[in-house]
């Protein structure tokens, strides 16, 4: 199956056209954020303050990369497990976040919010961190440098590979993939 090229930011029309199981290649900007950065973003929202990134139509990649060696753009950079961001994600989806890239299951609250606002959850290959790093062509820290690996970074990516896990209709590859495989061996 050939992968569909997606340029970020992702409009809601594009987001709603994606289906679970679709392979995609991202081009453009991805923002990194994981546990500690999400906690700070939601703290800002609770205080009524502005976010440090333009969240509308943006794609957040759940990753904490290894430090870059001299001459490298970034170190190894595979996805982290997404459920730890479930407590925060609906707040960002409400504000226009179009995509999240990670690995592993999401809560029903997140899925409901994705359906309501037209967002998509993508899976990158967990553990394929050296391979994925090759598709990141620029990296700069946006904020929270004190968090080290957990700082928010702006990544420019070229042909970053991912798969749609949960689409904006609630279709879920983790459920359908296993069922279809089971059917094939029954």
């Amino acid at each position: 199956m050939s992968a569909r090229e997606i340029t970020t930011p992702i409009t809601k029309d594009v987001a709603r056209s994606l289906r679970s199981g679709d392979d995609v290649l991202f081009n453009g900007i991805l923002y990194t954020a994981r546990d500690a950065a999400h906690a700070r973003l939601v703290e800002l929202l609770d205080k009524g303050e502005a976010l440090p990134i333009d969240i509308k139509d943006a794609v957040i990649y759940y990753v904490g990369p290894t430090p870059a060696k001299p001459g490298q753009v970034i170190g190894s950079a595979g996805p982290t497990t997404s459920y730890r961001m479930d407590a925060y994600a609906p707040r960002l989806i409400e504000l226009g976040l179009s995509g999240m890239i990670g690995k592993g299951k999401r809560s029903q609250d997140v899925i409901d919010s994705m359906k309501k606002h037209g967002a998509v959850y993508f899976g990158a290959i967990g553990g394929a961190a050296a391979l994925i790093a090759k598709t990141i062509i620029a990296c700069e820290i946006v904020c929270y440098e004190d968090l080290g690996s957990e700082a928010i970074r702006k990544l420019t990516v070229k042909d970053f590979p991912a798969t749609v896990i949960i689409d904006s209709l609630g279709g879920n590859l983790y459920e359908t993939g296993v069922k279809e495989y089971q059917k094939s061996v029954a």
């Binding site: 290894t66 170190g75 190894s76 595979g78 290959i125 961190a129 050296a130």
Partner: peptide, 14 residues
């Protein structure tokens, strides 16, 4: 991925 990591002396996983 594991071949890239070994050849380029990068961590296999972040």
């Amino acid at each position: 991925n594991m071949d890239i990591a070994r050849n380029e002396k990068m961590p296999v996983c972040q």
